[in-house]
């Protein structure tokens, strides 16, 4: 690891001040992505601004029937919170399958969506549930938050404070995971609210996306069979040592059908 100075601000304003005008400063949340990156010397920040002491970034509350979850809330907190299990159980289930217990004890919602790893789980939830990302400056619709591989709509120096997830009538996230890292080789989150269905796919492409053909088919008939005739075009999907694009295309359909079947 290259040397850096560490700062532990106690308020959001102080964190924003430390960040502004310093291009080489970086925020740290749970550090579960950032610290391994620093250890491999893939990044060289001059200053690390640890958000761990900023109290109002943590916690889960009910809002407008859905849930508002602070950016610094850990995956384990979401996994075990009775409130999440009651209001959006599929979200608690997703959080409980991220990485391993120790990663979940430190890794955070904000860190996960800002990092926007193509294989991360939470981006699937943000798209499928039609979430809104809140920052220290504005609100960003979940649908326009993920802009590319490891890229988001955030401006430099902008800090995610919370994510608001509306409550679906039912939802289910199914992931085909990499057995070593537990990241999604393909993950599909299906959410149904009234007559509307959203289907989000993560792990398969440069970043999470909505599978609109499946949404239309499921809106007509909410059954796993309704997906049978659909095909997924592998040409835009990822191909790596874990899975070819063709295999990922196949898995998208299988995971979507399993998610729907699990909601019956």
């Amino acid at each position: 690891m290259y040397a850096f100075d560490i700062h532990r601000p106690e308020t959001l304003g102080e964190a924003a001040r430390l960040l502004s005008g310093n291009e080489d400063a970086k925020l740290m949340a749970g550090g579960q992505t950032l610290i391994p990156t620093l250890k491999q010397r893939l990044a060289q920040p001059s200053d690390l601004i640890d958000l761990g002491q900023v109290g109002d970034l943590k916690g889960i509350r009910e809002e407008a029937g859905g849930l508002t979850i602070g950016a610094m809330t850990t995956h384990a907190t979401v996994q075990f919170a009775p409130l999440v299990k009651r209001v959006i159980p599929s979200l608690a289930d997703l959080a409980g399958h991220i990485g391993d217990a120790q990663v979940r004890n430190r890794g955070t919602l904000g860190g996960s969506i800002v990092n926007n790893d193509p294989a991360a789980d939470y981006p699937g939830a943000v798209l499928a549930l039609g979430a809104t990302v809140r920052t220290n400056k504005r609100q960003i619709a979940g649908d326009s938050f993920f802009t590319g591989m490891f890229e988001t709509a955030l401006d430099p120096g902008e800090i995610v404070t919370a994510v608001h997830f509306p409550r679906p009538d039912s939802g289910r996230y199914m992931k085909f995971r990499n057995p070593a890292s537990r990241y999604a080789i393909v993950g599909v989150y299906v959410a149904k609210t009234g007559g509307a269905v959203r289907v989000a796919v993560t792990g398969a492409a440069a970043c999470a996306f909505r599978w609109t053909a499946a949404e239309q088919a499921l809106t007509r008939s909410f059954t796993a069979d309704a997906l049978e005739s659909l095909t997924v075009d592998p040409s835009d999907l990822n191909s790596d040592l874990h899975a070819s694009a063709e295999y990922r295309a196949h898995l998208v359909k299988v995971m979507a059908k399993r998610a729907v079947a699990g909601m019956m």
Binding site: I6, R8, G31, I35, D50, G52, N105, R106
Partner: peptide, 15 residues
């Protein structure tokens, strides 16, 4: 009280 990977946490974060 929570299990964490001490190789993926800075000493400063344990203040």
């Amino acid at each position: 009280g929570k299990s964490v990977k001490s190789c993926t946490m800075l000493a400063a974060q344990a203040q």
